[in-house]
Design a binder for these strands. Structure first.
Length: 544
RNA sequence: GCUCUCGUAGCUCAAAUGGAUAGAGCAACAGACUUCUAAUCUGUAGGUUAUAGGUUCGAGUCCUAUCGAGAGCGCCA
């Protein structure tokens, strides 16, 4: 829906209705030169006997519309519209919250990192996509709560504890770097050493049963790991409303199981507890050794959230490889009657290496996030970045490069591409923003201005591009796809840069109506690009 | 074997419910700094949208087949 076009649509509808054409009328942006928006409705009525008459009448009616500067009907029946200055004067300052008629209450689950494992490049997508969806919803006036949903329970932790126990490591001396090497070692050991694996399973069970000594050890590991995770996330500009994990829902998970038993919706299958709902593979809730699975804990988490707050939508920002898991989870939620809310898996493609296979998380070759940050920072230092902006620019690259590709596709992770500072990059959009900011700092603010028709090509292009903001924002919001906004940040900056290089603003040659108009244009650009930054989770720099 | 996702320029990616002439960036080539920051701007070149059919006014987008790539598949998360 293009903002401010309701009355154009209704004009078209009225004419079509006279000829008994009653249908949904829609407008879309056009790629043609000197055409802003187009209407495709008429194309399919080419064989209508009144087509010429309809076209004539449409042209007459639309020519009268004050939001339209020029209308033309193509031979193949596309309706091409050039918008009037009045349209822009009225539609560049609308508040997003006012346009959003369907306010929602949402919880967004980041399918969190696991404690004891280093954050690696594979974690980038969930963080970036999640934050963008979160911010976009906030801007739209929706209520949204983010929960990191930490992987802090079950087998992964049990493996770490078992490894510490087996090698008689002093748990009090273990720091986060130790943990990062312990997990892969323990994981490998479990594959070859059956006794060790059995031991780990026992520890997992002890955790679920609340064994005091095991819990104490778990707490130490938890604290060491979480402190480090929080520190890195903060440096990267990520924060969460809730920092709950699987360990917080142990009791709730048990309740879910108990209720399912009462409702007779589960059955014993060779020692394991399985849902009666038909699925392939079947849904196992409790393993034959008594411990819970991933899905079981997720059910507990939903129980926990339902108790805590009323949401009407659950979003899970998790890798597409888990789509089957979520299909089963959502199905079980409704089968068990846990919630009747809307559940959605916001899946994203894997980040692949040059071999086109997902970057693996285990053993030696893990590309840690901290390493990636350092690599980018070093690349930026070569370009003589302002020292103060280095952190923010690094984060910008880390976010922007990741949000540019469509989330639903896999994409190839290449370090060169990530550290690139030319072209369609975070650096480019920051630079445009800094240029605008610099201008605005040196002049007093211009209050609202009505444009007249006296706009040159670059000015007109900039205004038009700015007006697309609402369409793209809501497209991103509704589809949970940040890449539309990321792409827009680039095109908007590009149009601004062209305007900037070809039009002097503060020069003495430019006198007042002209100058004030251009300053106002810069203000409009700045205001919109900042909102896009906000929606993407990018902090603007002061200088560069 | 079964299920799912994908295949667009040399490379990395766009293309809103099916719309007109498929767009960007990188790399390549040619230009623009005495002027609000050149981390910028302007231009050239680059395509049978994997292949073959089908649906229709109209297909990169929907359907079928083939080829190619990736992912998931009972007690890991």
């Amino acid at each position: 829906m293009i903002v401010g076009t309701k009355n154009i649509i209704s004009d078209i509808k009225v004419v079509l209705k006279k000829y008994s054409i009653i249908e949904l009328v829609e407008l879309s942006y056009s790629q043609f030169e000197n055409v802003d928006i187009q209407c495709n409705n008429l194309v399919k009525h080419a064989k209508n006997s009144n087509i010429e008459e309809i076209k004539r009448e449409l042209k007459n009616t639309l020519s009268e519309n004050e939001y339209i500067h020029k209308v033309s009907l193509a031979k193949n029946n596309f309706i091409n519209i050039e918008l009037s200055i009045k349209y822009f004067n009225e539609n560049l300052n609308t508040e997003i919250k006012q346009i959003n008629e369907n306010k929602q209450s949402i919880i967004i689950d980041y399918g969190g990192p696991n404690i004891g494992k280093a954050l690696h490049v594979g974690h980038l997508r969930t963080l970036n996509i999640g934050r963008s969806i979160y911010n976009t919803n906030k801007l739209a006036g929706n209520k949204i709560i983010s929960d990191i949903h930490l992987g802090d329970w079950g087998m992964p932790v049990a493996l770490i504890l078992a490894f510490i126990e087996k090698n008689k490591i002093d748990i009090n001396s273990v720091n986060y770097l130790d943990l990062e090497s312990i997990y892969p070692d323990a994981n490998n050991l479990a594959k070859s050493d059956e006794v060790f694996y059995e031991n780990a399973k026992k520890i997992a069970k002890k955790l679920n049963n609340g064994d005091k000594l095991t819990l104490n050890n778990w707490r130490k590991i938890y604290k060491t790991s979480v402190t480090e995770i929080k520190k890195l996330l903060k440096e990267m500009g990520h924060s969460f409303d809730w920092f709950y994990g699987e360990s917080d829902v142990v009791e709730e998970t048990k309740k879910v199981i108990a209720n399912a038993k009462i409702q007779k919706k589960v059955v014993d299958d060779s020692g394991a507890l399985v849902s009666k709902e038909k699925h392939e593979p079947p849904i196992i809730l409790i393993k034959s050794d008594g411990s819970f699975l991933y899905l079981t804990t997720d059910l507990g988490t939903i129980y926990f959230r339902e108790e805590k707050q009323a949401f009407n939508k659950y979003l899970y920002v998790v890798d597409q490889r888990q789509s089957n898991h979520f299909k089963q989870l959502f199905s079980t939620v409704s089968y068990f009657g846990l919630s009747d809310k809307e559940f959605q898996h916001i899946s994203y493609g894997t980040m692949n290496g040059v071999d086109n296979k997902p970057l693996k998380t285990r053993d030696g070759g893990v590309y840690k996030l901290t390493t990636l940050r350092d690599d980018i920072k070093n690349e930026l230092k070569k370009k003589n970045s302002e020292e103060n902006s280095l952190e923010i620019l690094t984060n910008t690259i880390l976010t922007y490069s990741d949000l540019i590709p469509n989330r639903t596709q896999n994409y190839k992770f290449e370090i060169d591409q990530f550290t690139e500072t030319n072209g369609k990059t975070g650096i480019y959009i920051q630079y445009a923003q800094v240029r605008a900011r610099k201008i605005l700092e040196s002049v007093p603010q211009v209050s609202y201005i009505n444009f007249n028709g006296d706009l040159n090509e670059e000015e007109r292009n900039l205004i038009f591009e700015i007006s697309k903001f609402y369409y793209i924002f809501f497209n991103s919001l509704e589809k949970h796809e940040p890449h539309h906004l990321a792409e827009y940040a680039y095109t908007l900056s590009q149009v601004f840069n062209t305007f900037y290089t070809n039009n002097k603003i503060l020069s003495e040659e430019i006198s007042n109506p002209e100058r004030e108009k251009r300053v106002y244009l810069v203000e409009l650009f700045y205001q919109k690009i900042l909102q896009v930054f906000e929606a993407l989770g990018i902090e603007p720099v002061d200088k560069m």
